[in-house]
Design a protein around this nucleic acid. Structure first.
Length: 104
DNA sequence: CATTTGACTCTAT
DNA sequence: AATAGAGCCAAAT
């Protein structure tokens, strides 16, 4: 299981409740490796997708912005999906971190 | 087996 | 305050 780190990331992301988001760095910190924030997102790319139990759209940047250009359909789809779950968005098109950032 | 790359984050200018 | 650059560490080639 060379990819145990990825599996661990998936497990954490899977625990993110609806209407709540987490940053890559936070998820990385949860798995015990805050330096591998980049791989958290990289793991998302290799993830089975929201259907596989990994709502990668709930994982955002530390600023609350999304990874536009690499998501399934685009930032608009991700924004709409998060908004559908009850996530509050700022006028800048970013997630309201102070209100919807996931707390373990 | 060595090199490259990458959904990030922080620090410095 | 905003922009630019470097650092991190594992997976893919």
């Amino acid at each position: 299981m060379a990819e145990r780190f990825f599996a661990r990331v998936y497990d954490v992301v899977r625990q993110i409740p609806e209407g709540r988001v987490a940053t890559y760095g936070q998820v990385a910190s949860m798995v015990g490796e805050p330096r591998k924030a980049r791989f958290v997102g990289f793991a998302m790319h290799s993830s089975p997708g929201a259907k596989g139990g990994v709502p990668c759209h709930r994982v955002v940047f530390k600023d609350g912005s999304l990874c536009a250009g690499y998501v399934f359909g685009g930032p608009d789809a991700q924004r709409a999906l998060l908004e559908e779950e009850g996530v509050t968005f700022l006028a800048d098109g970013r997630v309201d971190m102070g209100l919807c950032q996931w707390e373990a």
